[in-house]
Simulated assay, not measured.
Amino acid sequence: MMIQAIRLTRKKAALAVILAGAVLAALILLLGQHGGNVGASEQPCLSSNGERVAYLRELGWEIDPEPLTTLQFLLPPKLSGDYITYNDLQKSQGFDLETCCGKQVTRYTYTVTNYPQRPDGVQLNLYICEDLPVAGDVVCTGIDGFQDTLVFPQQTDAS
């Protein structure tokens, strides 16, 4: 049987504490990058159409329950051009497409039935990556068209 004794000096103890701190910091950084955007754990898992419709209804939207279109695409590894402008709109509502760079995203487009003073012609796009909502917008095309966030608009009294 072999017994080995290790002499612990202050220098070795300090080095062990620094090394443990560096490993802990590295773990925190790695887990922080893997976790995506802030609040991602608060985002609901939307793996089914029923869950997506319920999520949008919680935001105040009344929509036709079946999507008009479903489109899958690969987000580029780095956002550029129009993606940057669109992501600014998303950041204003708590989303961030950068967390999905290089990943497959699915866009579900629904018909909105309760947009204030717009009985028809309004659509809602919801973007899902790995079953989490990562972007969304409300659009209306035409002469007085618009693009806005998923925040339900406040009704104004025209009296």
Rank of each mutant, 00 (worst) to 15 (best):
L8I: 15
T9I: 06
R10H: 11
R10D: 11
R10M: 04
K11H: 07
K11L: 11
K12G: 03
K12Y: 04
K12M: 07
K12L: 15
A13T: 15
A14W: 08
A14C: 04
L15K: 14
L15I: 10
A16T: 08
A16P: 02
A16E: 05
A16M: 08
L19D: 00
L19G: 05
A20W: 00
A20K: 00
A20Q: 03
G21W: 07
A22L: 15
A22G: 13
V23M: 09
V23N: 03
V23C: 10
V23Q: 02
L24T: 12
L24E: 04
L24I: 13
A25P: 00
A25M: 07
A25Y: 06
A25L: 14
A26W: 07
L27R: 00
I28D: 04
L29V: 15
L29Q: 08
L29F: 14
L29K: 07
L29R: 09
L29H: 09
L30T: 08
L30F: 10
L30C: 04
L30A: 11
L31I: 12
L31K: 08
L31A: 11
L31V: 07
L31H: 06
G32Y: 13
G32D: 11
Q33R: 11
H34A: 15
H34C: 03
H34F: 08
H34W: 13
G35Q: 14
G36W: 12
G36Q: 12
N37P: 04
V38L: 05
G39F: 06
G39Q: 06
A40T: 07
A40L: 09
A40D: 06
S41D: 11
E42W: 05
Q43P: 00
Q43I: 00
P44H: 06
P44T: 05
P44M: 03
L46M: 09
L46C: 12
L46S: 08
L46Y: 05
L46E: 07
L46N: 07
S47Y: 06
S47L: 03
S47T: 06
S48D: 07
S48V: 01
S48A: 04
N49V: 09
G50H: 06
E51K: 15
R52F: 00
R52S: 02
R52C: 06
R52Y: 02
V53R: 03
V53H: 02
V53D: 03
V53N: 04
A54K: 09
A54G: 02
A54N: 05
Y55S: 02
L56S: 02
L56D: 01
L56N: 01
R57V: 02
R57W: 01
R57Q: 13
